[in-house]
Simulated assay, not measured.
Amino acid sequence: MKNIKFIRVSRDITQLRVQMETGISQSTISKYETGESIPTVENLLLLADFYNTSLDYLMDRTDAVTPYPKKSSSPGYHE
């Protein structure tokens, strides 16, 4: 998961700042960046929102940093 570290470093953001903004501990972020641990879906969503990117980018499935468009609510759709 090289993109999790790449996006942070390329934007000159510290792991401490990611922790403060997302609530994910610095040690957990470090484990994600080194491949020692795989992020939970909840943490992937937090990171994708923080970095304004897609889950596919964070999981190295694409090189496109641009996030997907947000889903609009439609008639009949209920969360």
Rank of each mutant, 00 (worst) to 15 (best):
S10W: 02
M1Y: 04
Q15I: 06
D49R: 15
F50M: 07
S37L: 15
P67S: 02
P67R: 01
V18P: 01
R17G: 00
Q15K: 12
R61L: 15
L45V: 14
L16Q: 14
E21C: 09
S30I: 02
V9I: 11
T40K: 15
E21Y: 03
N52I: 09
P69Y: 04
R61W: 13
D12H: 14
R17H: 13
K70G: 00
E79T: 03
P75R: 13
N43A: 10
Q15G: 10
I24S: 00
M1S: 12
T40Q: 11
N52P: 05
Q19M: 13
I7A: 05
G35K: 08
E33M: 05
S54W: 02
I24N: 00
R17E: 15
T28N: 06
R8H: 07
S37R: 15
N52A: 11
R61A: 08
T34Y: 08
I29F: 04
V9W: 00
L44V: 02
R8A: 08
E79A: 09
I24C: 04
L16T: 13
V65H: 02
T62D: 09
P67E: 01
Y32R: 06
T28P: 00
K70S: 08
G76D: 01
G35D: 08
K5Q: 13
T14Y: 06
T22V: 04
L16R: 13
I29P: 01
S74D: 06
K2L: 11
T62P: 03
S10Y: 05
I29D: 01
L46A: 12
T66R: 10
T22R: 04
V18N: 02
T28F: 01
G76M: 03
L16C: 03
D56T: 04
S10H: 07
S25K: 11
L46M: 13
I29H: 01
I38T: 15
N43V: 08
E79W: 07
V18E: 07
M20D: 15
S73P: 00
E33W: 03
I38N: 14
S54M: 07
A48E: 00
Q26K: 15
V41P: 02
N3S: 03
R11Q: 14
D49N: 15
H78Y: 10
E79G: 08
K31I: 02
I7Y: 05
M59T: 13
P75K: 13
E33N: 05
L55H: 05
L45A: 13
S27H: 10
E21H: 03
I24M: 08
L47S: 03
T22N: 04
F50L: 06
P75D: 09
S74Q: 11
L46E: 08
E36A: 12
I7G: 06
D56E: 14
Q26C: 08
Y57K: 06
L58Y: 00
I13S: 05
M1G: 13
G23R: 10
L45P: 00
G23D: 03
K71C: 02
I4W: 01
Y57N: 07
E36M: 07
I29S: 00
I38V: 15
G35C: 09
L58A: 02
Y68K: 15
N52H: 14
R61G: 06
K70D: 07
Y77E: 08
L45T: 11
R8D: 04
S10M: 09
